[in-house]
Amino acid sequence: MSHRSIIVSAALLFALITIIVAPSLIKAQGQQAPPQGQGQQVQGQGQRQGQGQGQGQQGRGGGRGGRGNQPEVPSKPTPRWPDGHPVMGAPQGDKGIWGSCCGSLSNAQTPYQPWAKALYDYRRNNEFEPHTRCKPSGGARQFVTPYGTEMVEAPDLQKIFIYDIGGPHTFRIIYMDGKPHPSNLVPSYYGDSRGHWEGDTLVVDTTGFNENFWMDRAGSPHTDKLHFIEKFTRSDYNTMKYEVTVDDPGAYTGTWTNSFQMRWGANSELFEYVCQDNNFAPVLLVGQEEKVDRTSVIIP
């Protein structure tokens, strides 16, 4: 038998073994896969760690992380103020933050204007989000800030503050004094938020946005005509239902609504995070760069 014949025979034998053995190996791997529930829990943990890249899946908000594979402890009831309405943040003597929720507000039914849909599609492939340049993120994008958000109620001031942690150290004010939006609003990142209670639900009406940010992580476009109606319902200690209605005749042909859940991250609180300190894209900060370094992870 020649040397060449030996090599060909060996190759054929290897191919035969591969054809016979490979299917059983693949089957065995499938049997070792974790049960569906475990897989989802791991995904929830990953999402929390990677906030800012969330997929916006309903009911899968960040905040589950930290418990690993331990069984979920039943939640305590919704904490309440003496007047009966729910506490939106940590009750006295406790601390905690809300994990991220809504990576993408839009879905297949979102009534885009043609330019807005084209821009959304473009952004899905060419991320150049102002958040990565340490710009504040208004609207629902605030709740996708890395490390979560802290809600602080100040009844004496008739205000609720929402602090986003992993951003440029900014916050939103929700005015609870019953006054309407000012008529001479200067467009801003967070706009002007006015809240009131409808039963156990905090309803927040916001207008006066500028166009300098993305209103969600996915890049849904908006114009300065954007009007947001948000509904916060803390259904138990660990769960906040967040429903948002988008009204922007500049970018959409009608109003649209989506809802998500935020999970409570116990024993966490605001810490000093200055986006500009460790930003990996300093040239983006002053707008000189025109391309994104795709080899970099999402910043911050």
Binding site: K135, E211, N212, F213, P221, T223, D224, G250, G287, Q288
Partner: peptide, 15 residues
């Protein structure tokens, strides 16, 4: 210059 650069506009692409 910095102020102008700060006025990013992410709405309609022609605005």
């Amino acid at each position: 210059v910095v102020a102008v650069a700060g006025f990013a506009q992410e709405g309609h692409p022609l605005t």
